[in-house]
Nucleic acid binder design. Structure first.
Lengths: 190, 190, 190, 190
DNA sequence: TATGAATGAGGTTTCATTCAT
DNA sequence: TATGAATGAAACCTCATTCAT
């Protein structure tokens, strides 16, 4: 634990990314200034451009959800278990780095930008859902995967953005149970 | 045919909206300047703010479709039929004529602001979903209503923002059928 | 007499030009910031770009000596009288707008820039000296004109840039008398 | 002959000074970057600060005209001969180290800085001209010395900065002859 | 009401300078 | 000791937005 992190490229980069994540999550792309991010990180605004080239690139790197373990690791899980895992990740988990929201939701907030939409699409369809579709049985697994993605995304939005009362008041177990019944037609044999 | 369109408020507004639609569609939000839009419309840039308040609001209005009437009328429908109707209006309707943007997404984009979030919550929970919950049988109809709302919201986002391929490629009938099976646990007796 | 000059385009432009003249004169092109000029003029820095497009253009317009009357008007004067007039203009006169220096000297201070050098050459050779050469008798009037120009320029430099003591202490009459004897070989018949 | 000049403090210093002289002479203080100088010298930019402390100090040390032999050596010359010598040194000579200009002219190019102006004044008045004044006959030799200095300075400026055509085209003999006639009233008995 | 001058915040770059190896 | 990466200040310029006429 070094008392001063000065002259430490990695630490500076990380500090910028952390600060950017929070600011972007809370105030969106346009509502966030490079100077504010730098101030939060305690460094000079110029370093944003030294390390990331542009505000857009910083955004792209800051708000970039890693493919969650549930999909990335080699473990073979059933689609039903996977759906439950994703529910945890997207809806129920605490994303402190992102101000309590899943990065995908954060990106949604800045979806006015074409680049953000493209990033969103790539992360979601090419990242999450395609791997998910591969484990789904029956016909048109892609469509079913996307509908499951829609439900997860929607739940995340309802919870964090809309602040829907019943969803937030319900116990995780209750939510999981209802969710399981809803996605059953998607993850089970037709 | 008036030789000059000056002093015609409605025409000026319409001209601004038309010009904005075109510019925004071609060059995106950031690539479009207020001055360019005003120049295209042949009016002073300040009128954008007089009539629309801000560039963002002009964007929102330029690419905004009409609010769907699905829940507004007094017709009494069963929960299952209502869900199907909403699916049509929110998800399947052809938004391309309006630039492919759903009004809820526009609000979602500004959800960094607390006022917008509150408005979103009020319209969605107190407006749409409560009426929907009243028609749902079984326990905790609110939670189920919100989960249905989440699915609809998510589907809209997937289609227009994310541009998910399978959802856009699937026939409306196919989507409706799958959707019906998914929402069955929500709209039917427990 | 308006107490406030706000919202007055002409006054703002003039204020910027005045402030720019002084700053550029004293600190050179690179030593002067747009913000400082704007602060001196009491306006926003952005107006520099609104009215002049760039710092360079502001410089070009601010430090642009009008051809002095001594050469511009149609009056036919002898070369000797003209030299005396120029001595006044370049060396002895008070150029309060330019911080006490002739614009040509001010340009000299920024002559590191190629554009400034070109502007300097054009003003001096094509403006002042060619007209002067036309009135000189004898052989190679251009060379003599340029040597006279050199003396005038040098005197200006000595006085304001170098701050030479004797030249500043001497009475104008004394300087004029000595100057007249020195330039005599240039302005008289060979 | 060492294959590499690394680890040779004196050589590095000298290389930096040489490179600095040329860059500063051609592009002025502000137009010259420390990195460019270091690149020309083939060393790391940080060495500028190791050896000279700052860019300003490097400038001061690089652009420091030695008192020319014409005045420094003990030889007793007449004022007329001296003027001719100075003409050679300041105007006609090739100052290859300084990019073809006398160091005094080089300093003039950076005279936006107060320190440079002070250095210029000291070199010129206290160095060159005072010694020159001591050899001048008649009344007010200082004033005459400064006027001679002005002519020399002005000629240098005209030649290198302004790029005056006739002065550069004329043969050295022609220039010397005309110069001699002009300075005659200064160097001769009144 | 319509105009256009004024504004200030923000993105980006350049550059002198300093620390860590 | 010499290097080069890291730093931060300052600058330019654009653009959405507001204000006075």
């Amino acid at each position: 634990m070094t008392p001063t992190r000065r002259r430490d490229k990695a630490a500076t980069r990380a500090a910028l990314l952390d600060a950017a994540r929070l600011r972007f999550a809370r105030h969106g792309y346009d509502g966030t200034g490079v100077r504010e991010i730098a101030a939060d990180a305690g460094v000079d605004p110029a370093l944003v451009f030294r390390y990331f080239g542009s505000k857009k690139e910083l955004y792209a790197q800051a708000v970039r959800p890693e493919i969650p373990e549930g999909l990335a690791d080699g473990t073979d899980r059933s689609a039903a278990v996977l759906a439950d895992t994703l529910l945890h990740e997207v809806v129920l988990a605490d994303w402190d780095e992102y101000g309590g929201e899943h990065p995908l939701l954060v990106m949604l907030r800045s979806s006015g930008r074409a680049e953000v939409r493209e990033q969103l699409r790539a992360q979601l369809c090419d990242g999450y859902l395609r791997q998910f579709a591969e484990r789904l049985p029956g016909t048109s697994p892609e469509l079913r995967a996307e509908m499951l993605g829609a439900l997860l995304l929607g739940l995340g939005v309802m919870r964090s953005v809309v602040g829907s009362p019943a969803l937030n008041a319900a116990s995780p177990e209750r939510t999981r149970a209802l969710f399981a019944r809803v996605v059953a037609p998607l993850v089970e044999e037709e």
